Amino acid sequence: MNKVGTLFKSLGYAYLVTMGLMLIYNLFLTYTNLQSSTIPLATSIITTVASAFAGIYMSYKNSSKGLLYGLLAGMFYVISIIMLYYLIDDNFSIQSINVYKTILNIISGGIGGIIGVNIK
């Protein structure tokens, strides 16, 4: 499989991880005494884990340059999530916390890429 196909496949798996973890979190939020004030932290953790998963898958399939491919997968994941937020929310604006979260997710993709290369 070519690298672009692997990138899109890793993004697809990252979105599945995001949806699965969001579903689990929402079930906890609904059926337990978990406060809604935990939503920003939970979404940050979930997107960071999904970005790392995209990096792991991308570098695992390419078997080399884990940091580079992980950073690339994390960057495309974050950019696509930001574009989705922009399309959904009319009042969306880039704030400093969004920049920090973006950098965190790109770095987690890179760390996932390093892990993915070393799995084999």
Rank of each mutant, 00 (worst) to 15 (best):
N2E: 10
N2G: 08
K3Q: 11
K3V: 09
V4Y: 13
G5E: 11
T6S: 12
T6E: 02
T6D: 06
T6G: 05
F8I: 10
K9W: 14
S10H: 02
S10T: 03
G12A: 07
Y13G: 11
A14C: 09
A14Y: 02
Y15D: 09
Y15N: 09
Y15I: 15
Y15M: 11
V17I: 12
V17M: 08
T18C: 08
T18S: 10
M19L: 14
G20M: 09
G20A: 08
L21M: 08
L21V: 13
M22S: 13
Y25S: 06
N26T: 10
N26Q: 10
L27T: 06
F28L: 14
L29T: 00
L29Q: 08
T30V: 06
T30C: 09
T30F: 14
T30H: 13
T30D: 05
T32C: 01
N33P: 07
L34P: 03
L34V: 11
Q35I: 07
S36G: 15
S37I: 09
S37N: 07
T38E: 13
T38P: 10
I39K: 12
I39W: 12
I39Y: 08
P40W: 06
P40I: 11
L41V: 15
S44K: 10
I46V: 06
I46Q: 02
T48I: 09
V49C: 05
V49R: 00
S51E: 00
F53N: 05
F53G: 05
A54D: 15
G55A: 07
I56D: 10
I56Q: 12
I56M: 14
I56H: 06
M58T: 05
M58K: 06
S59I: 03
S59P: 07
Y60T: 11
Y60C: 11
N62C: 14
K65M: 14
K65V: 02
L68M: 12
L68W: 08
L68T: 07
L71M: 12
L71C: 10
L71H: 01
L72M: 11
L72P: 01
G74T: 02
G74S: 03
M75H: 04
M75R: 04
F76P: 01
F76Q: 01
F76V: 08
Y77G: 06
V78C: 07
I79M: 02
I79K: 05
S80M: 13
S80I: 06
I82E: 00
I82S: 01
L84D: 06
L84E: 08
Y85F: 10
Y85P: 04
Y86H: 14
L87I: 14
L87F: 13
L87H: 04
L87Y: 12
D90G: 15
N91F: 00
F92S: 03
S93H: 03
S93D: 02
I94A: 03
I94F: 04
Q95G: 13
S96V: 15
N98T: 12
K101P: 05
T102E: 01
T102C: 03
T102M: 03
T102V: 04
L104K: 11
L104R: 09
N105M: 05
I106F: 00
I107G: 04
I107N: 02
G109H: 02
G110N: 04
G112K: 07
G112Q: 07
I114C: 14
I115K: 06
V117S: 02
I119E: 14
I119Q: 13
